[in-house]
């Protein structure tokens, strides 16, 4: 068992998550991709925790899970609000920041 195999798996999941965030139009799908990114980070935390024989990795992974729950709650609320106001959750259409 290499440490690296876990880290590479996490890297792959992370990158796929980034890809999802960057390409998906649907707000809910963007949130799902963010979850993927957070999971990749968690794998890293737990892998390093095991590697160092330190409980801290797990503890922080748990914190990240809790924060992810909060993030999804607020994120979905925002998506719902966008949907209610614009009848669409296409994030690509939300271009109010246009200069």
């Amino acid at each position: 068992m290499l440490l690296n195999q876990y880290l590479l798996l996490a890297a792959a999941l992370f990158v796929i998550g980034v890809f999802g965030v960057l390409t998906r139009r649907n707000g809910v799908l963007v949130l799902m991709s963010v979850e993927l990114i957070l999971n990749a980070v968690n794998i890293n935390l737990v892998a390093f925790g095991t590697f160092h024989g330190d409980i801290a990795g797990q503890v922080f992974a748990l914190f990240v899970i809790a924060v992810a729950a909060a993030e999804v709650g607020v994120g979905l609320a925002i998506v719902l609000l966008i949907y209610r106001n614009r009848r669409s959750i296409d994030v690509a259409e939300a271009n109010l920041m246009k200069g």
Binding site: V18, L22, M97, G99
Partner: peptide, 14 residues
């Protein structure tokens, strides 16, 4: 250039 599309900004930032 200035599309205002957050996605593009995010891609560039990443």
């Amino acid at each position: 250039v200035q599309t205002g599309r957050i996605r593009q900004y995010a891609s560039l930032m990443f």
